[in-house]
Design a binder for these strands. Structure first.
Lengths: 142, 142
DNA sequence: TAAGATTGAGCCTTCAATCTTG
DNA sequence: CAAGATTGAAGGCTCAATCTTA
């Protein structure tokens, strides 16, 4: 029974370290700029991407790979901060649409440069562009 | 000011998805085999790697990239389960060494096949070996 | 006063139970 | 009864405060 070779385990460890390192740097930079955590960016971005710039809670949860209960509470925090709104679905009274408010749009624009800067300095710079392409391609293949 | 190109952001997103996917599969397989979470494996493995097969709490924490407080509690759980032991350091009465018990060694041996199987099937198979090498190399370069 | 380790508070997440509507 | 969403309980993490020894 073939075990994963050492280099594969190394790749897995490296994947974890790299992910953690970049993520923690982004979080630290956002915090020191007085901005909300990356998870908030993801929510705002995912809603904005959806057709009609609105999305059902359940669908948003699965696109963010977070549990439904988790999204409900995450959305509560964003809504308290005035960055999103939940609107009743006109055709299905069980459902809600998440929508980005103007303040949410603003926040997205303020967060992006910080986020982008970290990706540029800690992800693009140390990892060459061609490698990034290989990684993106390989990791997407599932 | 150059923004990260689309492919770099794609690589970052892919990195996150891949890491999460493999991690969650490992956790699910361990759980369904009645075994402890991956974090426990990491602790046991890190102690076993250290010179003398023992390691100070603070050093263990930093090698696992977890906070000291977090490690104290994680170690509490492993110790309650009889997998590790904390021994007083003979030369510095402030310090403790974490040591793996025989039951801990056993556990490591039971967890590895499950862990390895997921890496083989979900990480090695979809990502080709040469790519894994590129990824390991690129991601380690920091 | 600093360093090793632990503790308590607070935050965020998941899971299972609940409520409402289809 | 099933599906969308929320709620409460429990688990685990971080941070700051604390205790002990150097």
């Amino acid at each position: 029974m073939a075990k994963p070779s050492k280099s594969v385990v190394d790749a897995w460890i490296a994947l974890n370290r790299a992910q953690r390192y970049v993520f923690e740097t982004i979080e630290a930079e956002l915090k020191s700029a007085g901005l909300p955590p990356l998870a908030w960016y993801d929510v705002l971005w995912a809603i904005g991407r959806a057709p009609g710039r609105r999305i059902r809670m359940a669908e948003l949860a699965s696109s963010l790979t977070v549990s439904r209960g988790g999204l409900t509470k995450l959305a509560d925090r964003l809504e308290s901060a005035g960055l999103i709104r939940r609107e009743a679905a006109e055709d299905d009274r069980r459902g809600l649409y998440a929508v980005v408010t103007p303040a949410g749009e603003q926040m997205l624009k303020r967060m992006w440069p910080v986020y982008a800067k970290v990706l540029r300095e800690r992800f693009v710079a140390p990892i060459r562009a061609e490698e990034a392409a290989v990684i993106a391609d390989a990791l997407s293949r599932r």
